[in-house]
């Protein structure tokens, strides 16, 4: 049986700098660099293609600077790609862009905002990227609801309370600024915000980074529960293979902006094919 992917990404390339015709050719794992010798530009992602299937949790691993965060930011329209095609196959999208299959990177900024607000939820690697630290934690979530045309304070606050409960945050602190919160709480506020408009795709970037082990474990449980409850399709970036092992069914391995290996998570962890993946797996055993 053929299952239609919910996300299709084709030949995504992101070059920082002016770029040249040789950038992609000059970079990647075989060159052991992401910087083009010809023009000095940096290729954060080069020809990245993959599919995400409905209800799947897809992991992305790779060393620091391999382009993982850039990839998620591209999918959330935070940064513009140099090249590439991005499709989401879901009926919810048709109300925003019509029935034709269109490359989402070519939409106007208004349409992109609709998709960000209604289809995608993102948790950034660093809480300051995803939260306004001077606005109350509840307000950070309210912003998303407001974008979806919520105009009733009582209803907004009720929804914030529900999301706080779901993400195990103390409801009585919803009017405090997240800068006063611990790292784990800030990540939870980000997760609550990401869930606020019932997204169908969740992008998670190193959400357990810098948290102590018990907090990590609870966040992972939370993600697993949310995944089931909301039938989400998730892309999760982590350099921590134990996170990948616990949460994902398939995994992509990146290096110097390229995908070097894709496969079922179990297979990748038991029998890595690419030398870099072998190194990665062996170093974390």
């Amino acid at each position: 049986m053929h299952i239609q992917p919910i996300v299709e990404l084709k030949n995504l390339t992101k070059i920082y700098g002016k770029g040249c015709n040789l950038c992609v050719e000059n970079t990647g794992p075989e060159h052991e660099t992401n910087i083009c010798v010809n023009c000095n530009s940096l290729v954060a992602c080069g020809n990245v293609s993959f599919e995400l299937y409905p209800g799947e949790t897809l992991g992305i691993v790779g060393e620091s600077g391999s382009g993982k965060s850039s990839l998620l930011k591209l999918l959330n329209f935070d940064i513009e790609p140099t090249l590439g095609e991005f499709y989401i196959n879901h009926e919810k999208i048709n109300t925003f862009v019509g029935n034709e299959k269109v490359n989402l990177f070519n939409l106007n900024s208004f349409q992109k905002r609709l998709i960000k607000n209604h289809i995608i939820g993102i948790v950034y690697q660093y809480p300051y990227l995803g939260l306004r630290m001077k606005i109350s934690a509840g307000g950070n979530i309210a912003e998303n609801l407001i974008m979806a045309e919520w105009r009733n304070i009582e209803k907004i606050r009720k929804k914030i309370s529900e999301l706080f409960e779901k993400t195990e945050l103390p409801i009585d602190r919803m009017d405090e600024q997240p800068e006063k919160f611990s790292g784990g709480m800030q990540q939870r506020v980000q997760i609550a915000k990401a869930l606020s408009n019932n997204p169908i795709i969740l992008l998670l970037d190193e959400i357990t980074n810098g948290l102590d082990v018990s907090v990590q474990a609870r966040i992972l449980d939370l993600i697993r529960n949310l995944h089931w409850q909301h039938n989400l399709s998730i892309i999760i970036v982590s350099h921590d293979l134990s996170v990948i092992r616990v949460l994902t069914q398939r995994t992509i391995v990146m290096k110097y902006g390229r995908i070097v290996e894709v496969g079922l998570t179990d297979q990748i962890l038991e029998d890595p094919q690419h030398p870099y993946t072998q190194l990665l797996v062996n170093s974390q055993l």
Partner: peptide, 17 residues
Amino acid sequence: AEADYSRMWLYLYEDIV
């Protein structure tokens, strides 16, 4: 230009809170 006014409303939300 984009009629992207959610932060104005957020400002009012914070004021009310």
